[in-house]
Computed example of a mutant assay.
Amino acid sequence: MKYLIHVLILFYLLPLSVFANTKGIISNDVTKSNKTTLTVAIAEGGYYPFYYKEKDTLKGLSVDIINYIKVNSHFDFNFITLQWPRALDLVARGKVDLILTLFKTPKRKQIYYFIEPSYGSEINQLFSLTDTDIDFTGQLTQLAPYAIGTLREYSYGKAFDQAQYLKKRPALTEEVLLKLLLNKQIDMLIGNPFKFSRLINHEQLNTKVRAIMPYVAMTPVYMVLTKERKDSHTIKQTLEQLIQQLKSTPSYQELLDKYQLNFK
C-alpha cells in the first residue's frame, strides 16, 4: 500500500516538472555550483544610462538585461571594469567573455559574435562651447572645417565612421574630451548625450558647453561575445533566445521608458 501511495505521489508531481518550461524560459532553479560564470567588460566611469553606479550599486539597461538572463539561465556574470580599448582587446582574445553596448561594424563582425537582436539603441550628439557659432542641420559635410573629439575605438554610426574628410581627434575618456573642448583644442565633441549631460551638470559647465541639434545618428547597440570559447556557439544561442524573449514582453518597453531609451 505504501508503495502504491509513493507511485501516486510521483505521478501527481510529474506534470509540474514536465510543463515548467512550456514558455521557453530556461528554469532558474539552478544551484550556484551548476552556474557557468561569464566575465563582462564594462568601461571605466560607466556609460549612462546603459550601466552606471549609484550608491555602489551597478544599474542601467544593460545591467537589467544581464540580470534577466541570469535569472532565466544557468549563467552567472562577473563584471570587470576596464578602459574601453583594453576591454575590446581582451574580449577579442578570449580573456574576457562579453562586452556590452557595442555598435556593429563589418570589422567588428569579423572579431566578435554579435548577440542578435540588438537590445537597445543609442543616440550620438555633438557638443560645443556656447560661444562657438556652428551651423549643423544634419549634413556631416557641414562639419568638415572643425576638429571633432571622439573616443578611441568607439563607433558613431556608419556615416560618421566612414566620413574620412572629417578631422577626428581621438581621446581615451569623456572627461578628457571635455577638457580638450574647454581648452579649445577641439571645436566640438561627439558622444552619448546622456553621459555628457551628466558630466556637464556635475562640472557645472551648463553656461559654457551646449548640445547641438539634430542628433548625428541613432544606432542599435548589442551584447558581444568572444569567439575564442569552445562553447561560444551554445552561449550565443541561449543569449539570443533570452533577449528575443524579453523584447517580446511589456517589461522590455517599461525598461526603455525607465531609462529614456524608447525613441519610437
Results as ranks from 00 to 15, higher is better:
Ala87Asn: 10
Leu88Arg: 12
Leu88Ser: 08
Val91Gly: 03
Ala92Gly: 12
Arg93Leu: 13
Lys95Cys: 00
Val96Arg: 09
Val96Phe: 05
Asp97Val: 06
Asp97Ile: 01
Leu98Phe: 08
Leu98Thr: 07
Leu98Gly: 03
Ile99Ala: 09
Thr101Lys: 00
Leu102Asp: 08
Phe103Leu: 08
Lys104Ile: 10
Lys104Met: 11
Pro106Asn: 07
Arg108Pro: 11
Arg108Ala: 12
Lys109Phe: 04
Lys109Ser: 15
Ile111Cys: 05
Ile111Arg: 05
Tyr113Trp: 10
Ile115His: 07
Ile115Met: 04
Ser118Asn: 15
Tyr119Ala: 05
Tyr119Lys: 11
Glu122Asp: 14
Glu122Val: 15
Ile123Thr: 15
Ile123Cys: 06
Ile123Asp: 08
Ile123Asn: 05
Gln125Asn: 11
Gln125Tyr: 03
Leu126Asp: 04
Ser128Thr: 13
Ser128Trp: 00
Leu129Trp: 08
Thr130Ala: 15
Asp131Arg: 03
Thr132Ala: 09
Asp133Ser: 06
Asp133Cys: 00
Asp133Tyr: 00
Ile134Met: 10
Asp135Leu: 06
Thr137Val: 05
Gly138Ala: 01
Gln139Ser: 14
Gln139Trp: 07
Leu140Arg: 14
Leu140Asn: 09
Thr141Phe: 09
Thr141Trp: 09
Thr141Cys: 00
Gln142Thr: 04
Pro145Lys: 10
Tyr146Asn: 03
Ala147Ile: 06
Ala147Asn: 05
Ala147Trp: 01
Ile148Lys: 07
Gly149Asp: 03
Gly149Cys: 03
Thr150Trp: 02
Leu151Pro: 02
Arg152Met: 13
Tyr154Ile: 07
Ser155Arg: 11
Ser155Phe: 13
Tyr156Ala: 14
Tyr156His: 12
Tyr156Leu: 03
Tyr156Thr: 09
Gly157His: 12
Ala159Glu: 14
Phe160Thr: 14
Phe160Arg: 13
Phe160Gly: 14
Asp161Asn: 10
Asp161Val: 06
Gln162Phe: 12
Gln162Val: 11
Gln162Glu: 15
Ala163Arg: 09
Ala163Met: 14
Gln164Glu: 06
Tyr165Thr: 11
Leu166Ser: 09
Leu166Met: 05
Lys168Asp: 10
Arg169Ile: 07
Pro170Asp: 09
Pro170Trp: 08
Pro170Cys: 13
Ala171Phe: 01
Ala171Tyr: 02
Thr173Asp: 00
Glu175Pro: 02
Glu175Gln: 14
Glu175His: 08
Val176Thr: 06
Leu177Gly: 03
Leu178Ile: 10
Leu178His: 00
Lys179Pro: 00
Lys179Tyr: 00
Leu180Gln: 13
Leu181Val: 10
Leu181His: 11
Asn183Lys: 11
Lys184Gly: 02
Lys184Ala: 06
Ile186Lys: 00
Ile186Met: 01
Ile186Ala: 01
Asp187Ser: 03
Asp187Met: 00
Asp187Arg: 05
Met188Thr: 05
Met188Arg: 04
Met188Ala: 13
